[in-house]
Every structure is written in structure tokens, then in C-alpha cells.
């Protein structure tokens, strides 16, 4: 549809024959000869061009005559996820996965579901590789409205940071044994930063240093919560010592938010722990962390541990 000037009210309407041809042009039923003649006239007749535009617009309104139906509630969340991924690909094409580059119109992504292992041996801990754990990230914010109460609560928690390892009996499957206390202490200090990153993600992500915008290559796949109630708030590459990862943060209802992390270990060794999962509790914000093949995964949020564990079942790599 072009935008020629509207015909003057004094302009006589096109003849019935010409109107029929215009309708035929829009409907695509002109013969090749009719088409050539009509196009030649169309190029010089603004009134006729306007009529064609109106007919095209009229045809496009047909769906308003149908009983309206709604797509499933999950479509909206899927769309925003796909939009996020598309935005990443548009702005960082050099980091794309070639397989994903071919997806001009992302269909519901083929999701590779991963399974948490029953036990994974951890190698020697390289303390230096995690001493500088930070995910100040926020390369860009892609979010829906962040609930103010979540931000306020996050701010309060950040000001009152206090870390404690969960070692209670009722959570024994997630307990770090005393023999590993030294290692655990190192992890505790480092992973605290991860929790703080989650907290920071809920706050003003605009206020990041310029360097933070260029910190890490983007992953070919991102950690994604595939749950109807999970609304994407933001995502960002992050740095884990010398390794790189990616965070996505989701709002769950009006009260909760969680961040999920996927960090590429790139062959770095990590400590052997008796449990396949490590948890931290920093003033109400819990972090659940585990390893899967060459990646470290974590989920953080001010939620009961059981809820976080449940959410891990919705975690997929897309």
C-alpha cells in the first residue's frame, strides 16, 4: 500500500468498469493483459492508487468479522522469549550459533531438555578461577514491568547481606559435609556474589559500567524457564572468573523473581562435593547450584528451596 494523496471530494469516482478492475487487481484475478494496462494506469492515477489501497485495507479487515478467539496463555511468554533471543541474534550476529541463524521466523524452539545427573565428580578446585565471581552484567535489559515490591525487597536484602550455608538435617540431600567446609567456605564467598547478582538484576540495571557492556560472548543457548507463570524480566551475559555464562531473570506472579544461570566451565576444574547440588541462603535469597556436563547451572530467588527445586524441572536450554 502506497500513500498517495487522498482524492479531492470534487474528483468524480472511477467508472464502474475501472472499479471492477481495481477489485480484480486486489483479488488477483486480472488477466495478464488487464494487469499490464491497469498497472500502467495505476502509476499515473493517484485516485486509482488510493482506491486500490482502500480495497486492500478493506480486504485485510475481514478477520474482524470472525468470532474472536484467544491463543493459549503460554504463547505470550514464548513470544517474549523468542523476541529476546532474536534481539540477541540481531545485535550480536557474530556470536550466533549457525544453526540458529537459519531461523528467520522462529517457530516454537526445539528445546533440548537436560537432566540433572545423579552424581558428578568434581575436580580440583581452582580458587583463583572463581575468586572474581561477578555477574554485574545487565548487557541489556529485556523485561516486562518489574514489580516495585520485588525491587524494594531486593534492595533491602542487598543492604542486609548475610550468608549462611544450609546444613540442616531436613535438607540433608543438599548439605555440604563438614569435611568440605573449607571448600564450601570458598564457594560460599564466591557464590554469594551470584546471589547478589540476582539481587542486582532486580534493581536498576541501567546503572552499569560501560565495560560491562562488552564483557562476554553470548552463548549459543540460554537457560530458560519454560513455565506459564514465568514472565521474562531481563537477561545478560555474565562472567564467572575466566569463564563466561548467561543469566536470565523471570518474574513469577507479583511477588517472586528468580534468576537462572548457565556458566560454561570450559574445562576448568571445580571442587568435588558430596552432593550434586549446592545451596546457599543469603538473607532469604536461596541459590541452588549444580553441574551438568561442561556447564554449571544455578537458580536463585527469594523462595523456598522446594520451590526452586521444582522450578529446575522447567529449566531448559534454548
Amino acid at each position: 500500500m502506497s500513500t498517495p494523496p487522498r482524492p479531492s471530494p470534487n474528483t468524480p469516482p472511477p467508472s464502474d468498469e475501472l472499479q471492477a478492475l481495481a477489485a480484480g487487481y486486489v483479488l488477483g484475478d486480472l488477466s495478464s493483459e488487464e494487469m499490464a494496462d491497469f498497472q500502467a494506469r495505476l502509476a499515473t492515477d493517484a485516485d486509482l492508487a488510493q482506491m486500490v489501497d482502500d480495497l486492500q485495507a478493506t480486504l485485510s479487515l475481514l478477520p474482524y468479522g470472525l468470532p474472536q478467539q484467544s491463543p493459549g496463555a503460554a504463547v505470550r511468554a514464548r513470544l517474549l522469549q523468542a523476541a529476546q533471543q532474536q534481539a540477541v541474534q540481531q545485535h550480536f550476529p557474530q556470536e550466533q550459533d549457525p544453526k540458529q541463524q537459519t531461523t528467520q521466523l522462529p517457530h516454537p524452539p526445539s528445546r533440548k531438555r537436560f537432566h540433572r545427573p545423579s552424581h558428578r565428580p568434581w575436580g580440583t578446585y581452582a580458587a583463583s578461577s572463581v575468586a572474581a565471581l561477578f555477574c554485574g552484567c545487565s548487557l541489556w535489559l529485556w523485561s516486562e514491568n518489574i514489580q516495585l515490591n520485588i525491587r524494594l525487597a531486593a534492595t533491602e536484602r542487598l543492604l542486609n547481606a548475610h550468608t549462611q550455608l544450609i546444613t540442616t538435617a531436613q535438607q540433608s540431600s543438599l548439605t555440604i559435609s563438614p569435611a568440605e567446609s573449607e571448600t564450601a567456605a570458598l564457594w560460599s564467598a564466591s557464590l554469594t556474589h551470584l546471589i547478589q547478582d540476582h539481587t542486582a538484576a532486580l534493581m536498576a540495571s541501567d546503572q552499569v559500567a560501560e565495560d560491562d557492556w562488552n564483557i562476554a560472548p553470548l552463548p549459543a543457548a540460554m537457560p530458560t524457564l519454560v513455565a506459564e507463570q514465568a514472565a521474562l524480566m531481563s537477561s545478560s551475559p555474565c562472567q564467572f572468573g575466566k569463564t563466561q555464562g548467561f543469566r536470565t531473570t523471570y518474574q513469577l506472579g507479583e511477588q517472586h523473581a528468580v534468576s537462572v544461570y548457565r556458566i560454561n566451565l570450559q574445562g576448568n576444574q571445580f571442587p568435588q562435593l558430596p552432593s550434586t547440588q549446592v545451596t546457599l541462603n543469603q538473607d532469604g535469597i536461596r541459590l541452588l547450584l549444580w553441574k551438568e556436563k561442561d556447564y554449571l547451572y544455578a537458580i536463585a530467588g527469594a523462595m523456598p528451596l522446594n520451590d526452586l527445586q521444582t522450578l529446575t524441572k522447567s529449566l531448559e536450554v534454548i
Partner: peptide, 11 residues
């Protein structure tokens, strides 16, 4: 239809 809806908005 849901798939196409997503595609259209991504455009």
C-alpha cells in the same frame, strides 16, 4: 495458529 501468531509478532 499459535506458532504463526508468534511468528507474526516477531516480524
Amino acid at each position: 495458529a499459535e506458532d504463526l501468531t508468534q511468528d507474526v509478532f516477531l516480524s
